[in-house]
C-alpha cells in the first residue's frame, strides 16, 4: 500500500463509524428510557432495588454468579420447532410444535426488554447457562415461601436442593455458632445426607452477606407487564 493518508483516514473512519452506529445509536435509543405502565393508570415498572437487596446484588456480583447464571429470559418469539408431548385426559401423543423454551421452562412469563434494566448499575445479563436463568426467580413462590429456607439450603450446599448441580457450595457465607438459650430463628435445617454439619449443640446461621444475597434473589422478578412487553398467553 502506498497511499498512506488513505490508511490513516480509513483506520480513523473504522474507529468512528461502528462506534457511532452501535454505541451512540443504542445510547440515543435506550439511554434515557424511563419506567413505564402497561396500560394507562397501571403502576409503573421497574422498581428500584434498594436496601438489603442492593447489598445482595453486590455479593452476587463479587462472587461471579454471572459466569453460570443469566438474567435475560428470551421472548415468546424465540421459538423452536420441536417434538412435544401433548397430553389430553386419556392419551398422550407427540407432535411437532413451536415452543418458546424459556417461557415453557417457567423462567419468565415474557421476554426481557431494555426497560427492565434501567436501574441496574451494571446489568448482569450473564454469558452461560450452567445454571438456570434467574431474572424472575423472585416470583417463584415455591422457592421463597413461606421462608427462604430453600435459598439458604441451596447456597449452603446446592446438592441438598438440586442433586447433580455443578454449583459450588457457599458455606463461607454461613457461620456455625453455639446454640444459646434457644435456637436462632435464622438457623437453617440441614438434612442427614449433608456431609458438613455442625457438631451437636451448634447451629448454622447465615451471615449478613447470605441474608442480603437471598434478599436480592427474592427481589429478582420480571413479573410485571410493560408497554412493550406483555405476558405471553
Amino acid at each position: 500500500m502506498k497511499n498512506l493518508p488513505v490508511l490513516y483516514c480509513g483506520i480513523l473512519f473504522m474507529l468512528i463509524a461502528p462506534w457511532c452506529g452501535l454505541i451512540l445509536g443504542s445510547n440515543v435509543q435506550l439511554g434515557s428510557l424511563q419506567p413505564g405502565a402497561a396500560e394507562d393508570g397501571d403502576p409503573v415498572y421497574p422498581k428500584i432495588t434498594g436496601g438489603l437487596a442492593a447489598q445482595g446484588r453486590a455479593v452476587y456480583t463479587e462472587m461471579g454468579c454471572v459466569y453460570c447464571h443469566t438474567q435475560q429470559p428470551r421472548p415468546a418469539s424465540a421459538e423452536i420447532l420441536q417434538l412435544q408431548t401433548v397430553k389430553t385426559n386419556t392419551t398422550s401423543r407427540t407432535e411437532m410444535a413451536y415452543v418458546s423454551p424459556d417461557i415453557a421452562r417457567g423462567w419468565a412469563k415474557r421476554g426481557a426488554v431494555p426497560r427492565d434494566y434501567i436501574y441496574d448499575e451494571h446489568p448482569l445479563l450473564g454469558l452461560f447457562r450452567n445454571g438456570p436463568d434467574l431474572a424472575d426467580i423472585g416470583s417463584n413462590a415455591a422457592l421463597s415461601l413461606p421462608t427462604s429456607i430453600w435459598h439458604y439450603q441451596h447456597l449452603y450446599d446446592p446438592q441438598i436442593t438440586s442433586k447433580g448441580s455443578m454449583m459450588p457450595p457457599f458455606r463461607f457465607l454461613f457461620k456455625t455458632q453455639k446454640i444459646g438459650d434457644r435456637p436462632s430463628p435464622l438457623a437453617i435445617t440441614l438434612p442427614d445426607s449433608e456431609p458438613i454439619r455442625p457438631a451437636p449443640g451448634y447451629e448454622v446461621v447465615p451471615t449478613e452477606r447470605a441474608i442480603a444475597l437471598v434478599a436480592y434473589l427474592r427481589s429478582l422478578n420480571q413479573d410485571y407487564e410493560l408497554p412493550e412487553a406483555k405476558f405471553s398467553r
Partner: peptide, 16 residues
C-alpha cells in the same frame, strides 16, 4: 468510559 466512569443506562452497557 461508558460502563464505569460515565455509565450508560441499563443494557446500553451490555451492548458496549
Amino acid at each position: 468510559l461508558m460502563i464505569f466512569f460515565v455509565p450508560a443506562r441499563g443494557v446500553v452497557q451490555s451492548v458496549v
